[in-house]
Design a protein around this nucleic acid. Structure first.
Lengths: 349, 349
DNA sequence: AGCCATATGTGTAACGATACACAAGCCCGC
DNA sequence: GCGGGCTTGTGTATCGTTACACATATGGCT
C-alpha cells in the first residue's frame, strides 16, 4: 500500500478544474481570499479538500514571487558544533524569536568545513544570510557575498556590503583584562583558535602570528593592552590556544600551565566555559581563587554566576535578534551591541 | 549607492549568451561538469564570473527537480522554547549531524502556537518533516500530514503514515519509578504539562483527566504502575504538573509540596532539570537526599551526574539522527530507541 | 572506407504558481 | 437611462531551471 507520502500532490490547476473555476480564482483563494466571492472560495476549498491539496507548492511560489520567506544561518565551520556551544544556541534563539514573530523560516545551512560548503551555500533557498563569527579567509563568506542577498555577519569579519553585529571586543577585553590582571605578575590568556586549522598551542604573546578570527584578534589586542597597562610585556604573557571552546580542553591546558616553572597568577579566558575549566584545574592544583590565581570568563553564562566568575556580560540572544532584523530589513546596516564587566569573586579587586 | 544585495542576480540564460553556448550547456556546467568539454566549461565559468552569477537559482531548481534538499523541523508550540531546552537542542544536534553529512539544509519552522501555524507549515519548502513530541490534538500535526511528504514524529503521538522514533516511556517510567518509590510511603510525581494549555496544578493521580501528550501520558502510566507495585494507590500519589520544563518552576512546586501536611518522601520527575529544581527545594527545606526524600530525573543530562541523580538515560542526539535518517529515507518507518536506568545517590537502593 | 560507440552540444517542454491587465456584471446616484 | 465605480472572474506571460530526446562530431576498430 502506498503511504501518504507517496501519493502525488495535487496542483492548483487540478483544484481549479474540479472546482469549475479558473486557476487564478483558485490562486486568489489562497493568497487574497477577499478577492473572491464566498461562493467561489468555498467551491475551491471543497475541491482542494477532495483532492487533498495542501496549498500552493512552496518552490513554485518562491520562484514566481522571488522570495522564500526564509533566513539562512551559517554556524561556524561544522554545523554540529553550533549546538554544542550554549552561547551559539542562545544566538540561534534570538534569530528564532524574530523569525517566529515575522513568520519566517530559519534554515541552518549544512556547513562541514569541506570543499562542498560553497555549493551548499549557493544552493540555499533563502532571502538573506546570517553568518556566525568566522575567520577573515573563510570561503563561505565569499560564497555568501556572491549570493547577492542581504547578509549580516556576527562578530566579524567586516565584509563590504554586509551588516556587522557585535560588541567592541577589544574594549571589553581591555576592561575585563584590567580586572583579571590587577596585581598579577604572570598573567596568562586562554584563547580561542587563531585560524581555521584550530591547533592548540601554548606560546608567548609575541609568538602569535596572524590571528585570522577577528573576534579572537580583537580580544587578544585588548588583553595585551591590559597586560601592558599593568606593566607586563606582551611577550611575557603566556597565551594558551584551545582548539575547541569547552571546559575540558581549557582544564587540561591550564593544568599544564600551572605545572610549569612559572605558573600564571591570573588567567583571562575567552568564554565562561573555558574559565570554568580553568577553575577546575586551579582547584585541582590545590590553589585558591583569586588569591593564587585570578580568573575571568566571557559571556556571563549560567556557569559564571555559579562559580562567581568575573566576566563580560553580553546578550547573544539580543544580538541574534538584531542580526535577524537587519537581514530581514533588506539593507543591513551595522550595529554595535552593549557589554559590561560583571565583577564577582574570581578576581582580586 | 546600490548595495550588492540589490544588484539583480544574473540568470543562466544570460550566462549562456555571454559565453556563446546554449542554456543547457551552461546548466550542465553546474550540474554535470563532466558532461561538458573543458573548453565550454571554462567559457561558461568565465562568463558567470564576469556577470557575478552565483549559480542556479535555488527556487527554480527546486521547482524543476521536485526536491529542495532541506528537512523541516517542527519544535514544540513555540519555536523559542526549543532553544531553551538542552535536550531539545541535543535532538536538533542529532538532526544537524545527519543533515550536514548528507548535505541537506535544516529548516526550523516558525511555530508560535497561534492560528497562523498551519499556513506556515504549508509554506515550508522542505522534502520531509520531523516533529518534536507534541499532543494528540496538535493542529500542526494534521498540517504536516496534509503535506504528503515523508514525516517522522519524535516521542508521539503516533500518526498514520508517519514514522515514530522514541523510547518506551511507560516501561522506562515503570523502571525508574520502582527505584524512586522504593521504601516510600508518600511518592510524588513532577510532571510535564498535560495539555497544550500548559497549566500548572497539583492533583492526586486520580484527578488526572485526559493527558494529551503521549509522552507524558506514558510516563505517568509507568509511574502509576510503579506506585501500585509499591502498594500505593494512584489516587494517593501527588502529581505536580509544571507548565514549563525548567528547574525554577519545579523548585517552587516541590517547595510547596514539602510544606504540606503530608510531604512526599519520593519524587519522580520527568527531566533532570525538574529533578535539579526538586533537589534545591529539598535541600532548602533542610532535608536529606535520599533518606528523607528520594529523587529521580530523566535524560541523564550533565546536571544529573553533577547532582548524583538516579535517572533514565537516553540519547536524544541519536534519536534526532534516527529521525533525520528516517525522514530522508523517503518511507519513514518507526524505531524504538534504547534507554536504561542509571542509579546514583539520589535514591535509596 | 565503413561502422559503431562515445563525447559533446542544442531546442523544447515542462515544473507549479502568481502578476497583470482586462472584461463582465452589478449597484448607485443623478 | 446612463455613466462611473466597485466587485469578481479569467487568459496569458513569466519566474529560472533542468529532463529529455535528438543532432552532430570524434575516434577506434576492422
Amino acid at each position: 500500500m502506498e503511504p501518504s507520502a507517496d501519493s502525488k500532490r495535487a496542483t492548483l490547476a487540478q483544484v481549479a478544474e474540479l472546482a469549475g473555476v479558473s486557476v487564478m480564482t483558485a490562486s486568489y483563494t489562497y493568497n487574497q481570499p477577499d478577492r473572491v466571492s464566498d461562493r467561489a472560495r468555498s467551491k475551491v476549498l471543497d475541491a482542494a479538500a477532495r483532492l487533498g491539496y495542501a496549498g500552493p507548492d512552496p518552490s513554485a511560489r518562491s520562484l514566481r514571487r522571488g522570495s522564500t520567506r526564509t533566513l539562512g544561518v551559517v554556524m561556524g565551520e561544522h554545523l554540529s558544533y553550533a549546538f554544542e556551544d550554549p552561547e551559539a544556541v542562545s544566538f540561534l534563539a534570538g534569530i528564532a524569536d524574530v523569525c517566529a514573530e515575522r513568520g519566517y523560516g530559519m534554515t541552518i545551512l549544512p556547513i562541514t568545513g569541506d570543499a562542498d560548503d560553497v555549493p551548499r551555500i549557493t544552493a540555499a533557498a533563502v532571502d538573506g544570510f546570517i553568518v556566525w563569527t568566522t575567520s577573515d579567509d573563510d570561503p563561505v563568506l565569499a560564497a555568501v557575498q556572491a549570493m547577492k542577498r542581504p547578509a549580516v555577519v556576527h562578530g566579524g569579519p567586516a565584509v563590504r556590503g554586509m551588516g556587522l553585529v557585535g560588541i567592541d571586543n577589544r574594549a571589553a577585553a581591555h576592561a575585563v583584562g584590567a580586572v583579571a590582571f590587577a596585581d598579577a605578575r604572570r598573567p596568562a590568556v586562554v584563547s580561542f583558535p587563531l585560524s581555521r586549522e584550530r591547533v592548540s598551542t601554548i606560546v608567548g604573546g609575541a609568538g602569535l602570528a596572524d590571528v585570522l578570527f577577528p573576534v579572537t584578534r580583537e580580544r587578544l589586542a585588548g588583553y595585551r593592552q591590559a597586560a601592558e597597562d599593568a606593566g607586563i610585556a606582551w611577550r611575557d604573557v603566556v597565551v594558551a590556544v584551545c582548539a575547541r571552546n569547552d571546559a575540558a580542553e581549557a582544564e587540561r591546558v591550564v593544568a599544564t600551565m600551572l605545572a610549569s616553572a612559572e605558573p600564571p597568577d591570573a588567567i583571562a579566558a575567552m568564554s565562561d566555559q573555558q574559565a570554568a575549566g580553568a577553575v577546575n584545574a586551579i582547584r585541582a592544583a590545590g590553589l585558591v581563587i583569586p588569591d593564587d590565581v585570578a580568573v575571568t570568563g566571557w559571556d556571563d553564562a549560567a556557569v559564571a554566576a555559579e562559580l562567581g566568575l568575573t566576566t563580560v556580560a553580553q546578550s547573544l540572544r539580543e544580538q541574534g535578534a538584531a542580526c535577524a532584523h537587519a537581514a530581514l530589513g533588506g539593507n543591513p546596516d551595522s550595529q554595535t551591541a552593549p557589554w559590561s564587566v560583571v565583577r564577582r569573586t574570581s578576581t582580586r579587586r
